[in-house]
Design a protein around this nucleic acid. Structure first.
Length: 227
DNA sequence: TATATGATTGCCT
DNA sequence: GGCAATCATATAG
């Protein structure tokens, strides 16, 4: 297993979002000890769905970043953290759930990829113990808030480096094509109520905004197994 | 300090 | 398909 390095993340968010599919999200989590019979502390997911956020996306936290007279970014609040070094964790809480993003793009540009879903590879017993609400195996980690709960990821991981343990992305010898994966890209996958509401507001208040949902408002990529 | 919001989830019909 | 719980932030006063 090979950890992904900063260069992997120093690319635009849609590229990183696609490249992360099939990679591993690994958490060497001391808190997992005791939750499973084997006292295992390594948890790992194979990533099957990601979502890219770019700085022209109204739903993106960095969108409201202010630019000074010379065009330099003057981010405020949490938006500043979207300009962190590529490979840095951007953890955000919404509706009571923690969401894990990884910062992308070169320093000075805002971009991030949200990890939306994965398949348990290691430590499934721990994930099952943590995901009490999951009625089926697939419900363990098939959502951005579900996988953070299963892996023990929370706000304490915000700002950490995701290219080194304990929490990191890695590659192994997995081959997406050989495994029968088909990569799907859609700007409609995962469109949230918030984005749709934002778009309706834009249409209602600006006569030159197309009523169609812009194809570049977000790029989401997900995988599907072909039977 | 107080209130509104949302990159979600789980349960309902 | 609908709907409400949830709580860290952002925003207002």
């Amino acid at each position: 297993m090979q950890p992904l390095d900063a260069a992997f993340f120093r690319r635009d968010a849609p590229t990183v979002a696609e490249a992360l599919l099939g990679c591993l999200l690994v958490h060497d989590d001391p808190a997992a000890s005791g939750l499973a019979s084997g006292n295992e502390t390594r948890l790992a997911l194979r990533i099957v769905e990601t979502e890219a956020y770019t700085d022209d996306d109204p739903a993106m936290h960095g969108w409201k970043a202010v630019f000074d007279d010379e065009g330099r970014v003057q981010p405020t609040g949490r938006a500043a953290d979207l300009f962190a070094a590529p490979g840095t964790a951007y953890v955000y809480r919404v509706y009571g759930h923690w969401l894990l993003n990884v910062v992308t793009d070169p320093e000075g540009a805002a971009g991030a990829v949200l990890i939306r879903a994965g398949e348990p590879v290691e430590g499934e017993e721990v994930m099952t113990a943590r995901r009490e609400a999951a009625r089926r195996r697939r419900d363990l980690t098939n959502g951005p808030g579900k996988l953070t709960e299963a892996l023990g990821i929370d706000g304490g991981h915000h700002g950490t480096n995701l290219t080194t343990p304990p929490l990191m992305f890695a590659q192994d010898d997995f081959d997406r094509s050989a495994a029968g994966w088909q990569i799907e890209t859609s700007s409609r996958i995962g469109l949230s109520r918030g984005v749709n509401r934002m778009h309706r507001w834009l249409v209602a208040s600006h006569p030159f905004v197309s009523p169609a949902v812009p194809s570049d408002i977000r790029v989401a990529r997900k995988t599907r197994r072909v039977s």
